[in-house]
């Protein structure tokens, strides 16, 4: 259920952008969501659809671009992981640091004008 606040944030941005462009309909919204955010796309879409009822964003499609976890390994450099780890996904070395994968942003939205 923690997707509810995220869905509300998406709707706020979508409605303010739609108003700024004098658009009465938002058709789709592209998001970048890091794996570390633990967002369930189905939950997010369901909650967004519920909140957007009766607004210009009603029926808008959420397209989620998943951002992998970025892992820096002192032995073999940067790589990406699909799940949180403290071992390098490439060489299994320790001492890695997680440097990315917590994005939560709206990239673009498609509107009718």
């Amino acid at each position: 259920m923690h997707e509810l606040g995220v869905a509300g944030g998406i709707l706020d941005v979508a409605l303010s952008e739609a108003a700024r462009h004098a658009s009465k309909k938002v058709t789709s919204i592209r998001l970048r969501v890091g794996v570390l955010r633990a967002i369930e796309p189905e939950n997010l879409s369901f909650l967004f659809g519920h909140l957007a009822r009766g607004t210009p964003a009603e029926g808008a499609l959420l397209e989620i671009v998943e951002e992998p976890i970025r892992v820096d390994c002192p032995a073999c450099g940067v790589s990406e992981a699909r799940a949180f780890t403290f071992e390098c996904p490439r060489c299994n070395g320790s001492g890695v640091s997680v440097t990315g994968g917590d994005s939560l942003s709206i990239l673009s939205l498609d509107v009718d004008v």
């Binding site: 944030g9 941005v13 939560l104 942003s105 509107v111």
Partner: peptide
Amino acid sequence: TVRIEVERSIL
């Protein structure tokens, strides 16, 4: 439709 590039934090 028109694509608006926003690149804004959801939060």
